[in-house]
Simulated assay, not measured.
Amino acid sequence: MTNGNSTLLMSRVTFGRTLRRLRTKVNHFTLAEVAATLACDVSLISRIENGKRVCSQPHFAMLMDLYAVPAGQRDELAELHATTRDWRQPWWFPYSEVISAQYERFLGFEAAASTVCEYQVGILPGLLQTEAYAQAVTGVGFNSLGPDQIEALVEVRGLRQRHRLLDTESPLECHYVITQAALDFQVGGERTHQGQLAHLLEISTHESVDLRVIPYTKGEQAAQIAAFRILQFSDEDVPDVAFGESVAGSLTMDDPRDLRRLHRLFRSLADAAYSPDESRDIIAHTKDKGK
C-alpha cells in the first residue's frame, strides 16, 4: 500500500483514507455511528480518517471488527497501522522550532510526492532558488523572525532541494509555470538576481524539471491567478493534495472538485507559456540585459 517515499504523514493519510472507504463505501456507517460504537468523539474518528491523529491499538481492533474486515486485508492494514506509529524523526525535525504546523504538513506531503505542478506569479519556486535569493525572500516574508530563525528557514529550503531534487535517486518530477515578471523582479540586489538567473538556466536542464514562462504578451492568462502547487503520489491509494497561497497564509485543498479545477487551470497556464527551450531563451535574455 505504501512506497519507498512514504513518510509518517503519508502512512497516516493512506491508513485514514482506507478506513474512510471501509466506513462509507463498504459498510455505509456515519461518523456518529462509528463514534458511538467506539465510545469516543466524532472528531477523533474524523481526525484519524484525515491522517491528523494516530489510531490507538484498541480502536484499531474495534474498527476491524465493526467493519468486518477479512483476515488477509486485516493483516495488511495491521502492517500499515504499525507504520503510522513509527516515530522516526524526519529530516526537518531539528528545525521544529521555526517550522509552522502547516509547513511541516506540507514538507511531509512533499517528501512522499512523486510529482509537483506549481504556478508562481512574482517569485520563483522554492526548489529552484539559490541560497541568496531564498535569504532575501524569507527575510521579507518572515520579517517578524530573528536572523537565526530566518537562517534556519533558508537551510530548510536548501535541504528540501537536496532531498527532493539534487541529491536523490528518485527526484521529484517538477512541472513549473512562472510569469516573465518573476524573472524581471530583482530580488536581493543585482548580484543575487544575476546569480539566480544563472542558476535557473542550469537547473532548468535537470531531467526532472520542466520550467515554462508565461510572457508579458499573455498577461491576461496569468495576472489574476494566485500561486498554487499540486502534489501527486505514485501510490494510487493516496489522493492529490494542493496548496494555495494568499495573504492569510497557505491553504490546503484536497476536495476532488477543487483538485480537478486546479489541474485544468494548470494545463491552461502551461498552454499559455513558452516551451522549456523558449523559456530558457527568455531567462538568458533577461540575464544578459541585466549585465
Rank of each mutant, 00 (worst) to 15 (best):
S208A: 15
H285P: 00
L22P: 05
I123A: 13
Y103G: 02
S275W: 03
T192S: 10
F109V: 04
Q57M: 08
R12M: 08
L124M: 06
H285T: 13
G244Y: 03
L172E: 03
C55F: 00
L127T: 03
A39N: 13
P125Q: 07
L145F: 10
T252S: 11
T205H: 10
T192P: 02
Q196W: 08
C55W: 00
A113F: 09
P125I: 05
D184N: 14
V69D: 01
A284Q: 12
S11F: 02
S100A: 06
Q102A: 15
F233H: 07
E202R: 14
T2Y: 11
E278N: 11
Y176N: 00
A270Y: 04
L66K: 05
D210S: 15
A32W: 07
G219M: 11
T7V: 08
A32Y: 08
Q57T: 09
L19A: 04
R85G: 13
V42T: 14
M253G: 02
I230H: 11
E104Q: 15
A68R: 09
T252P: 01
V140Y: 14
V187K: 01
I99Q: 04
I178M: 06
R280W: 08
G219S: 13
F185S: 14
T205R: 14
D75K: 08
T138W: 02
L197W: 01
R17W: 05
D41W: 05
K218G: 11
P239E: 10
H206S: 11
K52F: 03
E245S: 03
L197F: 08
R164P: 01
P239F: 00
P276W: 08
T18A: 13
H193R: 10
V247C: 03
C174R: 05
Q73F: 05
G141H: 09
R17P: 01
R47E: 13
L172G: 09
E79Y: 00
L211N: 04
D240Y: 03
I178P: 04
Q89A: 14
L8N: 11
A32Q: 15
P171I: 10
M1H: 05
Y67W: 05
R260N: 11
V209R: 07
A101I: 03
H175A: 05
D237Q: 14
G158S: 09
R105V: 09
F185A: 13
K25S: 03
D75R: 10
Y67T: 04
W92Y: 09
T168K: 06
Q73I: 01
L265D: 08
